[in-house]
Structures are given as structure tokens and as C-alpha cells.
Simulated scan of single mutants.
Amino acid sequence: MVAESFLPHMNGVTNSVLHVLAHVREQGHEAMVIAPAGAEPGPESVEGFPVVHLPALPLNGYPTVRVAAGSVLRVRRLLAGFAPDVVHVASPFVLGWRAIQAAEQLGLPTVSVYQTEVPAYAARYGAPWLEPLLWNHVRTLHEASTVNLVPSTHSMDQLRGLGVRRTHMWRRGVDTRRFHPSRRATPGGAAFRARMAPNGERIIGYVGRLAAEKQVEDLAVLDALPGVRLAVVGSGPLREGLRGALPNAHFAGFLGGEDLAEAVAGFDLFVHPGEAETFCQTIQEAMASGVPVVAVGRGGPVDLVDSSRTGWLYKPGDLAELRARVEDLVYDDGKRLAFGAAAYATVRTRTWPAVCAELVGHYERAIQVKSRQLDVVARGVLAR
């Protein structure tokens, strides 16, 4: 498993890799992780599998995100030494592209998982002219992969629109034991609500990175709603700037494990304004916690939120509609509770064991495809 980011940096890519590692261990498979080294030392093993950390440099303006240095040759040597049946490439871009090339040189099948819409970040980080070049890179690396997996219909349309072949759907699971409506009533959940809403305010929650691509500043239209408290969970380079943009909000910082589950279940409503989400795992976690969602109607949220049943989708850029959709639920207890119950019912069967078993099927597909490709090449050589 070659991950573009990994522990100690926690994000959607890391989260999915950790769940896959747990599944393959339980099923008796062997694995190795190749990932960029973090600013702080990362684990030498996870689930009993070795983790190889390659030297990495911090991304300019976002030091917790690391870009691996090194060459295709270095990655090829690591792969050759482990001799895998398949190479899983999580959110490939820099290190992942090297892994795809190295695997091709070794005749190994690759399963590349499209998880991050990197080209869309270009304008947000002041370089809109880079976007076409970045999409060309996305096309190149995925077309070079044996099998490509996408988490949503939007991302499927993106890759197929680029002409990428061998593309299949693979959605994310959710930890329904951790994220559950019952967390709201635990001592931790009750304590979170008491801190956030000491006067019985309704809590509107956001969970995610505090970075440009998440558009958290759009939540300013909700910051002064009467009888409402905005809770922002997460960390990132824009934290201090967002404090100024959202003066009434509570910034909880990064939360994980039980603390995160209790916080999410403690929300009355979950909001997500980011337009560059290929999936949006935090939406699933909110729904599993029985919390309805208001999200932008682009990308992964379109598949997750059944508008008018489990939450609302609003038009990208229409912040007046965002506010109206939030007001529709936050001030109507009966509707909000009904939406939350429907949200929970929608995702409660989307467990990680189920989606990881599906992933192993994609591994098998990639092995078969690569075998056929190598047979074609061999026949061509013999014909000459």
C-alpha cells in the first residue's frame, strides 16, 4: 500500500488505509505500507505490518502535508523486495505516480484510488493556471494504472471525462460502532453539549481540515444565527484567520476517537461547504450519528445526502441558500429529528468490513487484468 499521506498526519486518505490494513490482517493477507515521513516520527508498523517512511518535504503553506522525495528506482527496490501480488495506491499524485511507474516496470498490477481532487485546489492556493496541467497529470497516472477506483458518481464522471479507462466505483465505509446516535447521551456527549450550548442553543457542527479547499469561511453566514452555536472541529493553516471570520464560533481543535464520536453525535446539524470533495467521510460519520446534513451540491456530497430526506444540498456559491437550508432544520425540531433518523437508516449498513471485502475483489480484478496484459505482450514478443 503506497499512501500519499499517512500517520502521524490524519485525514481521509490515512483513515481509509488504516481500515483496509485492519481488514487484510483479519483475512490473513500480508501488507507493507510506503508513505512520506512526517514532521514527527510515524509508527514503524501498523496492524503488525511494516511501514517504510520515505524522506519528505513540507508543502509550502501547509507544513503538516508532506511530499515524498526519492526516485522511481527507490520505490521499485522496495516493491521488488516485498514482491506483492498487487500494489494499492492511495490518492496517487507524487509518491503514488512513482509507485505506478515502478510497479509497471516490475509487471505488478496497480489499484489506484482517486481520493483527492488536487487540481481544484490550484485556484484556492493562488495558482489557477496550474489546473489544466494538474488534470493532465491525473489523466496520465490513472490511465497508467491497472484498475482505478472512485468514491462517487462525480469523481467517476471526472475520470471518465478525462478518458481514463478501467474505472470502477468503490465507496467508503463508516465505523458504525463508534459513530452512533447513542453517543449523544454518553457522559462525554452530554459534557460536549454543555460546553457548546450552556443555554440550550442548537449546535451546528463542522468537522475537517481548516484549509482553503474546505471553504470554512462560508460558514460566516451562520455565525450569528439566533439561538445557535457554531462548533468547528479540526486543525489546519487557516485556523487563526477563521477565528476572525467566525467570531462567535467555538474552535474545538483536532478531535479523534471517542471524543470525535461524542462531539459529532452532540451536533444538532452538520454542515460542509467544501466544493472539492470526492467523497466526504465526515458526512457519513454525521449521518451514522443520527445528525442531518446541509452540504454543497457538488462532488461526493451529492451521492451521500438525499436532499429533503436526510438533509439538504445547496447550489455551489449560494450562501443565502446555505443559510436558508440550515434555518429550515435548526428551528424545526420535528423535521430535524426525522431527517436525522433517515440519515442513520441510510448509512448503518455501510460498514468497513463490507466495503473492504469489495476492495479485495477489485484487487483480484487487477491481478487478472494485468495477467491478460502480460500475456498479450508475451505473445507479441514471440510473434516477432
Rank of each mutant, 00 (worst) to 15 (best):
R74E: 11
G274I: 12
D85A: 10
H53Q: 07
T349A: 03
V86I: 01
R243K: 11
R98G: 11
S152N: 14
R350Y: 00
A366M: 02
M32A: 12
M287I: 03
D306Q: 14
S152F: 12
E30K: 08
A194G: 03
A324C: 03
F339R: 02
G266Q: 03
L222R: 05
R323P: 06
A39R: 00
A341F: 11
F251D: 05
V376I: 06
G227T: 09
S5C: 13
V228F: 08
V294Q: 11
E201A: 03
F179H: 05
M10T: 14
A295C: 14
V94M: 13
P353N: 03
T64A: 06
G205Y: 01
Y62P: 09
P92E: 08
R66Q: 13
A56T: 02
Q215R: 11
E358Y: 04
E277P: 02
L141P: 02
L255V: 13
K214M: 08
H154S: 15
L162E: 11
A343F: 00
D306H: 12
P84Y: 10
A338M: 12
E358P: 00
T146I: 07
A22K: 03
L269W: 05
W170F: 01
M32P: 02
G227K: 03
A80N: 15
A252Q: 09
H137P: 14
R172G: 04
A276R: 08
G81L: 13
E285T: 02
R202C: 09
Q368I: 04
Q284V: 15
A345Y: 09
E213G: 12
D318P: 06
N148A: 02
H362Y: 07
L329N: 00
V326F: 07
G299V: 10
A295W: 11
W312S: 11
A144C: 06
Q215L: 15
V51P: 08
V296G: 04
D259V: 05
V233C: 10
A343Q: 02
Y363T: 10
L159S: 09
T186V: 11
Y331V: 07
Y62V: 04
L149V: 01
L238P: 07
S307L: 00
E40P: 01
P187M: 04
A224R: 10
H88F: 05
H250K: 05
A39S: 08
G42Y: 01
P36F: 13
R239T: 09
H9K: 04
H142M: 13
F192W: 06
R323A: 12
F192I: 03
A341W: 07
H168Y: 15
P55N: 05
R298N: 14
L106T: 03
R325D: 12
